[in-house]
């Protein structure tokens, strides 16, 4: 007996257009996504800053130029050991630190200084408006 199965008409969907779309999506996500999520720096705004225990002494830091920092009237070179030890002292004493910058100093430099002050352990950091020459 000869049995012949009916011919199956295979309606295969070509995957090539699908791959095209997937590749375009892949390219889009590869080019537009970043793996460096934004970070934040919390700043108290003088004078009503967040209540943090402090010694009651207020230390003033003025960013004079990209490489000069004035702490309580004494100018230090950026990143010098004297400047570091001053910041360490403020941190140890739990002093309140008010930071200002000259109006022509870049925002990036201000952030760099804020970063350094926080890194030295100062908890009570307030930022005030810029100072014109």
């Amino acid at each position: 007996m000869l049995l012949e199965m009916p011919k199956k008409h295979k309606h295969s969907i070509s995957i090539t257009p699908l791959i095209d779309v997937v590749f375009i999506l892949l390219l889009f996500f590869m080019l537009s996504s970043t793996f460096n999520p934004a970070k934040q720096i919390e700043l108290n705004t003088a004078p009503q800053g967040k209540a943090i225990k402090s010694s009651g002494i207020t230390q003033k830091i003025l960013l004079q130029a990209e490489d000069k920092v004035n702490i309580n009237g004494i100018t230090y070179l950026w990143g010098s050991s004297e400047m570091q030890s001053q910041l360490q002292t403020f941190s140890t004493n739990g002093d309140k630190v008010v930071l200002a910058a000259r109006s022509d100093v870049s925002v990036q430099s201000v952030i760099k200084l804020i970063d350094q002050v926080y890194a030295s352990g100062v908890k009570n950091l307030n930022i005030s408006e810029s100072v014109t020459r």
Partner: peptide, 16 residues
């Protein structure tokens, strides 16, 4: 980041 520090003043004033 390249703006002068004075450009933060209006923000600081408003916040204060």
């Amino acid at each position: 980041k390249d703006l002068p520090a004075s450009s933060m003043d209006p923000v600081l004033q408003a916040v204060k």
